[in-house]
Design a protein around this nucleic acid. Sequence first.
RNA 1: GGGUCGGUGGCAGAGCGGUCAAUUGCUCGUGGCUGUAAACCACGCGUCUUCGGACUUCGGGGGUUCGAAUCCCUCCCGGCCCA
Length: 373
Amino acid sequence: MTFFQIERRSKKTRARLGKITTPRGEILTPAFVPVATKGTLKAIPPKDIKELGVQVAFVNTFHLVDDPGLEVIEKFGGIHKYAKLDIPLMSDSGGFQVFSLGGKKIGVPRSEEKGTPVLEIDEQGVCFRSPKNGEEVLFTPEFSIQAQKDIGADIIMAFDECIFYGADKKYTEKATERTHRWLLRCIKAKKRKDQTLYGIIQGGVFKDLRIDSAKFVAKQNIDGIAIGGVSVGETHKELRDQVKWVALYLPEHLPCHLLGVGRIEDITEFIKLGIDTFDCAEPTRIARHGQVFRRQGQKIMRLDAMKGSLRGDKNPIDKNCVCYTCQNFSLSFLHHLFQERELIAYYLASYHNLFFFEQIFRELRRQIATGKI
RNA sequence: GGGUCGGUGGCAGAGCGGUCAAUUGCUCGUGGCUGUAAACCACGCGUCUUCGGACUUCGGGGGUUCGAAUCCCUCCCGGCCCA
């Protein structure tokens, strides 16, 4: 069984149409990987996943270790069964939490910031303080892999350090090399046979470090490759550069995942650079915050459903959208639901945004298939 | 008719002589959200401003005071009680 199969390559760009095969099913690529950190696509019941077109989701090792804990998940036979997610799943290693649980001071290493849950980063691993109960949790590459075995996602990520934005070259180089050594330990720790492992490229905003990292990761015994250390506050240009620098060094035969990206308007150009899968919390998060996507002509815009001007608006979110939300509800009603914090508001908005994203990806796949990209 | 409590910025509701242009919540407005500590967060919300301030506000009017949203008088309006 081939894990990743390329069905068609673009003649114009590095874009490719592919298929990832996992024990839980296939993923047509390019694919969007919505984020289900704690085992749930927030506000969306698993029974909707199929009609939404969601092929794969992204769970988080750190948060699942924190709650409900590995013993519980194992007891229920893994996260698929426990969370009733009958689709291929990817799990993040916990490396991103070095960044996300750290503070926001630009230019200060997370482990040196006082009062954050990131206590220490050293060769051994990362020591966190549990946001839930305050206990110290040590994440090592070995522990992360073990945890990901227990969680049981189909695709797992190597444990890395997501380097903070604003890190200087010296720190970036040190952290990147450490992440490389962690990758070797992850590989040595041995995943389950029914799982595939992705190595993660770091290197920050420095071209030579990015390329070195890509070369290093590419030559290891991995099933896929991921670009990490992005979506940490960099400018769009920096993001694009970081992907571009590395694009030529991505092994052709491996699926490539871009971690934490992205913005709906950025997807196309990254597909053209050879990215196959993208995970991003944005569509579901902004939905809960009241923002929904809609097309205005060729442009994709965001609409704030909280806006008072929608009070009596009879239109759906998007006139051309065929999702459940748009087929049944006016902006007026959606606005009313958000206004009143009615729980269904979060569902309807999340449903629409996910449907919208999946629709975009279907179109992009078709464009590659028909040679337009 | 008598008594009593009350009338504060879009709303609710604090303040009850100076530190009050006036706590707080909501509404409203603007911005943000990229491997989710996020059904969240930040900022603004009398007018003008060279951003130092300046000016007009707490039902209306009149007083006391160096100084009043805060005390007194009176009028208007509302709730409750008694006739």
